[in-house]
């Protein structure tokens, strides 16, 4: 079934992506039917992304970053809330429109080897999205495959077309994954920790490649990471997530230079720690237990670990977003 972009009426003036009150919960069942609770992986998230903007979502492992990414990709159905893409509510898309939406959003996963079917060669891997979207002309497909391979710097393309994933290095595999995300000419790319499983030596290369493509194609890039140190170079805005919620957001320099939320401050302090070289790795996470997403702490989710927690307030009431500085949101009662 061929679908065209015309199925999605684009409103060039509007923001590309508007997320309101988004919840994605995973129900926990016992014996297959008894509801015994839910993992609140995404629990009330709001943000707006403009066209051509690169943003980063940071937060410790398990805070719901991937769940948010998958919800935006339409891989999880949101429990509540709204995702509007180019002015259209995702929940109300027909199957044909949803398919067109999938061509609009590219996905770069964390594990490049796992992201590629091991039994297909590069040509076939890149042809699959085109076939799925009804491009029947072989030559047209071949042309687009070669073009996108050149774009991710796998050239000459001939050398890679016939290779199977296991014959490529990790960096080359991730370039194929990026090529696949680009081949349907999306307007947004979601990259979920795209370099965390690569050798340190190729990380910057891949990030530069993504950033370059994003700038040239004027893509909206959602870049998920738990490594704050690279964010400054690869994103314009940062969203800090904690326990399924966005707790702080601002432009990159503003947020890194003037962190407002105690969680962000703890994160940055961990990075700045001048101890041994691997101290950053060890203390990436602020002290204390990560919160349970099945029974999240009441009030501010950070209060059990927060050095500034105010009894009777933080443990009882959910802090709303405050604007302690211009264009800088932080959900903390300290800004009251």
């Amino acid at each position: 079934m061929a679908t065209s972009r015309a199925d999605l009426p684009a409103n060039a003036e509007a923001s590309l992506l508007k997320v309101r009150d988004l919840h994605t919960w995973f129900e926990l069942r016992q014996w297959g039917f008894l509801r015994v609770g839910a993992v609140h992986a995404v629990d009330g998230v709001n943000f707006t992304l403009e066209r051509g903007e690169a943003v980063a979502f940071v937060g410790e492992s398990g805070c719901g970053k991937s769940s948010l990414a998958r919800t935006l990709l339409g891989l999880h159905r949101p429990t509540r809330g709204s995702v509007r893409f180019a002015g259209r509510e995702m929940q109300s898309l027909s199957p044909a429109e949803l398919k067109a939406y999938r061509a609009e959003v590219g996905y770069v996963q964390q594990d490049p080897y796992g992201a590629l079917p091991p039994f297909l060669d590069v040509r076939r891997i890149l042809a699959e999205p085109l076939i799925v979207h009804g491009i029947k002309d072989r030559q047209e497909r071949e042309r687009r495959i070669r073009a996108v391979l050149e774009e991710v710097r796998l050239s000459p393309a001939e050398e890679y077309l016939g290779k199977f994933p296991h014959m490529l290095s990790g960096g080359q595999q991730q370039r194929v994954v990026i090529a696949r995300a680009l081949i349907l000419a999306p307007s947004m790319i979601i990259a979920d920790e795209p370099v965390s499983m690569l050798d340190a030596s190729v990380r910057v290369e891949i990030l530069n490649l993504l950033r370059g493509i994003q700038a040239r194609r004027e893509l909206t890039l959602v870049f998920i990471t738990h490594d704050l140190s690279t964010v400054r170079h690869f994103a314009e805005r940062i969203f800090v997530m904690y326990a399924g919620q966005v707790v702080e957001s601002a432009a990159v320099d503003e947020l890194l230079d003037h962190p407002q939320h105690p969680y962000t401050q703890a994160l940055l302090a961990a990075i700045a720690d001048p101890d041994a070289a691997n101290a950053r790795r060890l203390r990436e996470v602020p002290a204390g237990e990560p919160p349970s997403l099945i029974q999240p702490p009441t009030g501010c989710r950070f209060h059990p670990r927060c050095p500034h927690a105010m009894a009777g307030l933080c443990d009882r009431d959910d802090p709303p977003d405050f604007t302690p500085r211009e264009n800088h949101l932080s959900a903390c009662w300290l800004h009251r």
Binding site: L75, L98, P117, E128
Partner: peptide, 29 residues
Amino acid sequence: EAPYIEAARAYGAGNLRIVMRYMIPRILP
């Protein structure tokens, strides 16, 4: 649960394609 299946869903592959083209060939050998 393989990431490449998730990737296929993300680019719009249908159920039939996923079962016949991505899952079965994997265990055929």
